[in-house]
Design a protein around this nucleic acid. Structure first.
Lengths: 199, 199
DNA sequence: TATTGTTATACTCTATAACTATA
DNA sequence: TATAGTTATAGAGTATAACAATA
């Protein structure tokens, strides 16, 4: 209805630098970046998944599926852990592991065996095919991860990793699922305020 | 079928440290953490969203919705940007902004006005209610973000932020949507390998 | 009773695509 | 033709809950 006239001209390049609490900006055409840790974490994660997904696409793996292979690979990993162990390591729910492992098992990439000591548990192991896939995909994955940190000097990359590891390990209690998310207040749409005016 | 006997005993605490390429581990009961940058990014982001979601729960906001308020707040932000501008800043799709803004508008937290200069664009502004909510929630949000970095010294926090900002700004091309994700090869379930053996 | 895993269901985040209105 | 926004749909990631089998 309103013709939008009470609106000041757009401020695409505002005079005052936004989010003054952080260090100043650098790149030219890059829009202001919020300094909040969570915002940085999201963008950082976003970059990683975008770049790494590319490196995994030809193997038809998601980053998380690759994580499963990594945790089970015989060279570095811990073949023989059970699904709960994998859930803790990946920081995801048991039910999620169940689905992941089912999908990878269906592709013949890993085996589940009942543990003789505790018949409730499923012991996980890569098949030869799974191990071969991991070995084939690993170099590209490492390269992709390196590409993310390319703007940093070698010493800085190491430093970033160390800082992240400390933050993660000290927040272990939050670095896992099971924390109840906010329960969305099943809003009946526009239940808590007047409609916004849109012409 | 198999009774699981060909399986070696579980190796919950393997002798060799996994993922040798990274620095050694610290905390006792914390399971091995993959050193890959992407894995660290995921856990870091997970911690942030868990902690920050808690601080936003009483306002019934998601971290991303809070981000919208932050980018539009009159003190620090850029009130008057349009939806595309917001999409670029948040690093999400225009369609996603559309939904976010619709939900916040329905709650009376922001206004959309047609831009007089370009009637295609929607100029965004917090309502008084939206501004008040932002102000009310901000302190808790800042505290939540600080809590994430509590294990770091003040100098280290600053350093971590700087490193992340550099990585994000130099990877701007990947820190946005629109990159085609891998197209899942619509697997007909178990199409590419023998079934795993599970008793 | 407690724990491992499964299944069903659902929500958040985010993308793609097709569409409308405007430029 | 190109751009701003909307709508519909989908899929990745992840959660909750109820359940079965085993301890």
């Amino acid at each position: 209805m309103s013709s939008g006239h009470s609106i000041p001209p757009r401020r695409r390049s505002p005079a005052a630098p936004p989010f003054q609490d952080g260090p100043v900006r650098v790149a030219a055409n890059v829009p202001p970046l919020r300094r909040a840790t969570t915002a940085l974490a999201r963008r950082f994660h976003q970059i990683c998944t975008t770049i790494v997904s590319e490196s995994l696409a030809e193997a038809d793996l998601t980053p998380l599926e690759f994580g499963v292979l990594a945790y089970l690979n015989p060279r570095d990993g811990e073949p023989g852990i059970d699904q709960n162990g994998l859930a803790v390591r990946l920081g995801i729910e048991r039910s999620h592991v169940s689905m992941l492992v089912e999908a990878l098992g269906a592709r013949g990439l890993l085996d589940r065996h009942v543990n003789g000591e505790d018949r409730r548990a499923r012991v996980l192991r890569l098949t030869r095919k799974g191990g071969a896939l991991y070995n084939r995909v690993l170099p590209g994955n490492v390269a992709a991860n390196d590409r993310v940190l390319a703007p940093l000097a070698s010493r800085e990359r190491k430093l970033l990793h160390e800082l992240l590891i400390r933050v993660i390990e000290h927040n272990a209690e939050y670095a896992r699922p099971g924390i109840k998310r906010r329960r969305r207040a099943t809003r009946p749409a526009a239940a808590d305020g007047p409609r916004s005016s849109l012409e």
